[in-house]
């Protein structure tokens, strides 16, 4: 019985997620996208010298380094990946 209950909850959860996917996912994705591209800008202006952009990052930017460590390789990739029209289509 309990298991059946759980399954039912699982089904409603799935429907909820489906509806979220239909209606809200794009908006949430956009917000996160905007946030992430600001994050990339942030890393650029605080640690742009990592990519040879001639910025003198002030002393204190090194203090911020630990927090961005996990993002550095994807940041570099995103900064340097060649993009074209078809990237922006969806």
């Amino acid at each position: 019985m309990a298991e059946k209950e759980k399954k039912k909850g699982g089904f409603f959860q799935s429907v909820k997620e489906f509806v979220y996917g239909v209606a809200a996912h794009d908006s949430a994705r956009f917000a996160l996208k905007t946030r992430a591209s600001m994050e990339h800008l942030f890393i650029l202006i605080t640690m742009g010298d990592m990519l040879g952009v001639p910025i003198l990052p002030p002393y204190y930017s090194l203090r911020l380094l630990p927090y961005v460590v996990p993002q550095i390789s994807t940041w570099k990739r995103r900064m340097l990946r060649e993009k074209d029209l078809t990237d922006g289509l969806a």
């Binding site: 959860q13 997620e17 996160l32 940041w75 990237d87």
Partner: peptide
């Protein structure tokens, strides 16, 4: 990277 690449659960992707 949270911009283009963003892992998302299957149910949401259905929608």
């Amino acid at each position: 990277d949270g911009v283009e690449f963003m892992p998302t659960s299957r149910n949401i992707l259905y929608g």
